[in-house]
Write a protein that binds this DNA or RNA. Structure first.
Length: 631
RNA sequence: CGGGGCGUAGCGCAGCCCGGUAGCGCGCUUGCUUUGGGAGCAAGAUGUCGGGGGUUCGAAUCCCUCCGCCCCGACCA
């Protein structure tokens, strides 16, 4: 047993066996008595193998660096709390040092991810941070990635990048090492520093430039096998986020720049999230708003009832104001958005129409034929050239030059609507497709869904909530294997491209997301699984009471031996300081020991989310905490 | 990238308009007192006022320039 009471001891030896577990984490075998039954031996996982746990964890020997006030550049609560709790310190925009408290949380998250990745068949390796340009040129992403990818040169003036992701390198490994269908499937992963030179880093570690990501890549012989790998990763992700103690939702997602055909995001539910999640409470439909389909209106377009009429709307630009001025509902107006594409023949101008109360979905627009090669918002000169009028009074009626008109499904179904008259200070009302102007060139779903829209699966109506994207799984197909000639030989001895999937988890972003979801006015409230410490022992009167000191030391030793990740606050701070610090840091379980209770043989237990402490007899506290704080 | 704002002690800020001794709170150091919810008193330490250039007898303050940071950015808000 650990058996040491002396506060001055710095390095207690821990006479238990370190074992190499099947998934390569290092654990220690600890005696464990489950519910008072016969003692059993079980492996208690502390932290990952590369992070030896300091067994004697006393606050005076550790590093607690809390702040009363957050730096003024911190905007969101997780950034403020992480800084105040001493988890991170900013070095440059979007670049942070992970301080000791913060690193412990990261290591715990990594340990859980490793366990579940290994359980799901993943094989850990570690690919370099710096990668040669050649591989990226091979897939074409050297040119496609843009300034988000940090490029560096070595002393010979050769191009390198600091990796934002590792598809190229892992595919290079696979094509070099895997030659036979017998070697498939394989899933390689690593947990590595990434660098993405974000246009606007913000929100602390939530959108940093340098961050830690777990990225995994699966290689299979065919689509069916690859889909199994995808499902295995999906299931592993569900387990990971459940173990982390977070409320999350898996949603269908756009495949974006990475490419591929099937994709889910794992979103931590938080009102401060940047993403909008669409889900159906009556079914299992869930998607990112980028992807969620707005179904065509069920009804047939009504017949025109009014004559078209031009109305003066001086200085009235926004649909809301136009509707109010004319005295019609906002739903009767149509919003005009002008896009441009740059073709070899020069710019082409597009007019996209959504209902006044709807919003354009740029991801959907970007998939339209003609816009799928990339688009931009048209410049004001381009707008005037084509519409004969500056922004604010634009519409599909009588454009000066022909433009390609794309109407949202809802707009295509409208009658007697309002839009700009392409004349400064005027709109038109009573406008009707077919009668007053030709049918749109294209009718498509180009808007964001709104709450109450019918669910695409036909099983109810949609609801919307905010989330933080912490994980993303992609079915890649052969996009990279084809580009890089990554093949294996099948039974017939024929080369076949490997079918790939890729799977990411933002480790450092998870830290921020967990805080966004779990905090109060005093600070962070960690889920047990990722708390920097599971339990803090707060002795009141450490410096003056031998009884307090002895009891604290003894309980610390016993609880640690029981496998509880505890820290003993021996700093001899005043209680207010001590409590405020640990509440800010967010340690979920607190044991308070003071002369006041000790004289009655009592100590106090309080969970971070409890309103107040509970008195517990001294001889019951260890078994109580074993039940509560021993994950 | 465009627009706006800000850089003064470890953190939060004042001083700048109107040029003249660099300040406040928290934190830090020392001592005494205090000791169950961020203690009190006393005495201290800490600054290239973001960098460079200019104007001036004199610049945190006025001018130029560079850098850094923050916020905002649809014909949404």
């Amino acid at each position: 047993m650990v058996g040491q009471d002396d506060a001055d001891v710095r390095a207690i030896t821990f006479p238990v066996e370190h074992v190499e577990t099947p998934d390569c984490s290092v654990g220690v075998i600890v005696p464990y008595s489950a519910g008072g039954g016969k003692p059993v031996t079980r492996v208690k996982f502390f932290l990952c193998g590369s992070y030896p746990r300091k067994i004697d964890m006393r606050a005076s020997q550790f590093f607690i660096a809390t702040l009363k006030e957050a730096p003024s550049d911190a905007e969101v609560v997780s950034h403020k709390l992480m800084t105040r709790a001493g988890m991170i310190r900013k070095l440059a925009g979007g670049i942070y040092t992970y301080m000791p408290i913060g690193l412990r949380v990261i290591r715990k998250i990594e340990a859980i991810i490793r366990e579940e990745m290994n359980r799901a068949g993943g094989i850990e390796l570690l690919m370099p941070l710096i990668q040669p340009a050649e591989l990226w040129q091979e897939t074409g992403r050297w040119d496609k990635m843009g300034p988000e990818m940090l490029r560096v040169k070595d002393r010979h003036d050769r191009d390198f990048i600091i990796q934002p992701t590792s598809e190229e390198v892992v595919t290079d490994i696979a094509r070099g090492e895997i030659h036979s269908y017998r070697q498939l499937p394989k899933n390689f992963y690593h947990i590595q520093t990434k660098f993405r030179d974000e246009r606007r880093p913000r929100f602390g570690v939530m959108r940093g430039r340098e961050f830690t990501m777990k990225d995994a890549y699966s290689f299979d012989r065919d689509e069916a096998a690859a889909e199994k790998s995808y499902q295995a990763m999906y299931a592993a992700y569900v387990r990971i986020f459940e173990r982390l103690g977070l409320k999350f939702r898996a949603v269908r997602a756009d495949t974006g720049a990475i490419g591929g055909s099937l994709s889910h995001e794992f979103q931590v539910i938080a009102d401060t999230g940047e993403d909008l999640l669409v889900y159906c409470p009556d079914s299992d439909y869930a998607a990112n708003i980028e992807l969620a389909e707005a179904l065509p209106p069920a009804a047939v377009r009504p017949a025109p009832t009014f004559a078209m009429e031009k109305v003066a709307t001086p200085d009235t630009i926004r649909c809301e104001d136009v509707a109010r001025l004319i005295g019609l509902p906002l739903e009767a107006t149509v919003k005009s958005i002008v896009l441009a594409t740059d073709t070899p023949l020069g710019p082409e101008v597009w007019l996209l129409l959504v209902r006044g109360d709807h919003e354009l979905n740029e991801v959907k627009a970007g998939k339209l034929p003609g816009l799928d090669g990339g688009f931009r918002f048209a410049s004001e000169p381009e707008i005037i050239e084509h519409f004969g009028c500056p922004p604010g009074y634009l519409g599909p009626l009588n454009t000066k030059k022909p433009v390609k008109v794309v109407a949202d499904r809802t707009v295509a179904n409208m009658a007697d609507f309002v839009s700009g008259a392409n004349e400064i200070g005027f709109h038109v009302k009573g406008l009707n497709w077919g009668r007053d102007l030709p049918e749109p060139d294209l009718v498509a779903d180009i808007r964001n869904v709104v709450e109450g829209d019918p669910s695409p699966d036909g099983k109810g109506v949609l609801a919307i909530q905010r989330g933080i994207e912490v994980g993303h799984v992609f079915f890649l197909g052969t996009k990279y294997s084809a580009a890089m000639n990554c093949t294996y030989l099948d039974e017939a001895g024929k080369p076949q491209p490997m079918v790939m999937g890729c799977y990411g988890i933002g480790v450092t972003r998870l830290v921020g997301a967990a805080i966004e979801q779990n905090h109060d006015a005093k600070g962070i409230i960690w889920p047990d699984a990722i708390a920097p410490f599971t339990l803090v022992i707060c002795p009141v009167g450490w410096g003056k009471s031998e009884a307090v000191r002895d009891t604290a030391n003894r309980l610390y030793t016993e609880l640690t031996a029981a496998g509880i990740d505890a820290i003993l606050d021996d700093r001899d701070e005043r209680p207010g300081v001590m409590f405020a610090d640990w509440e800010l840091i967010g340690v979920p379980h607190r044991l308070t020991i003071g002369d006041r209770g000790l004289k009655d043989g009592m100590v106090e237990y309080q969970h971070r989310s409890d309103p107040e402490a509970t008195k517990v007899p001294l001889d019951e506290i260890v078994s109580l905490l074993r039940g509560k704080a021993c994950a």
